[in-house]
């Protein structure tokens, strides 16, 4: 008797899942330097012999829009992308398979409410190294490396961008047009970033403030959809 009920329940759950089939599309992020994939540590990029040792950034609040209305919103949407960890570079999407959308919208960084809500887990866990310790707040983005242009110790540059309070709020919203497609491939072109700043002048930003906001705005412009 009991077994039968269990079986019926199982069938019901299974059918339910089947009827509301969800596509598990992926949003894939591709860190690049111009036309080539971004490598950390070993590779040197010709222009000014640049090396990269770290690229980590938070993507949050992922939404799909049809024209201008939101048609899907990821729940609990916080993702730490780490250029050195392939697995971290894609987001599985469980939106309905027949969903029509023309745009993807997401934030670069962590919103101010999350910033003041205490300890969190998962990608937001402070052990991920993306939280300032001497002053509360998430680090939205870390880019570190070396360039001959930097007259610093070991020619190093370090950008730790973040800040959530008032004028120091560094959160950026990014909207990209997408053609209907199974996977969405998003390029993050660091070369564009370096073209927008002068490394000999600007090579260390480690705390919230005007500079961090300006640089975050520049970072928000290096995201683009990969043309098929």
């Amino acid at each position: 008797m009991k077994l039968k009920i269990l079986f019926a329940l199982f069938v019901a759950i299974f059918c339910n899942g089947y009827l509301h089939a969800q596509s598990t599309d992926k949003i894939l992020f591709h860190p690049t330097f111009g036309k080539s994939a971004l490598h950390l540590d070993d590779s040197c990029y010709t222009k000014d012999s640049i090396y990269f040792s770290q690229l980590k950034l938070y993507i949050s609040g992922v939404e799909f829009l049809n024209k201008d209305s939101i048609v899907w919103k990821e729940a609990n949407s916080y993702h730490l992308l780490d250029a050195s960890d392939e697995k971290s570079l894609y987001i599985l999407v469980n939106s309905p398979s027949d969903l029509k959308f023309t745009k993807i919208k997401f934030n670069l960084g962590i919103d101010s409410i999350t910033n003041v809500s205490g300890a969190m887990g998962g990608d937001l866990d402070p052990t991920k190294g993306m939280y300032w310790t001497w002053q509360s707040g998430y680090i939205n983005l870390k880019l570190e490396g070396k360039s001959k242009l930097c007259k610093t110790r070991n020619n190093e540059f370090q950008f730790h961008l973040g800040g959530y309070q008032n004028a120091d709020n560094a959160l950026q919203t990014i909207i990209l047009n997408v053609s209907e497609n199974k996977n969405i491939d998003i390029l993050i072109d660091i070369e564009k970033m370096l073209a927008a700043i002068d490394l000999s002048e600007q090579n260390q930003i480690m705390s919230p403030g005007k500079e961090a906001v300006l640089l975050s705005e520049k970072f928000s412009k290096i995201f683009s959809i990969q043309k098929q």
């Binding site: 910033n115 809500s117 205490g118 300890a119 402070p126 939280y131 001497w134 002053q135 509360s136």
Partner: peptide, 11 residues
């Protein structure tokens, strides 16, 4: 400098 008791111990 610290905005939440949970984050205090990190400092």
């Amino acid at each position: 400098a610290i905005n939440h008791l949970d984050m205090q111990a990190l400092a």
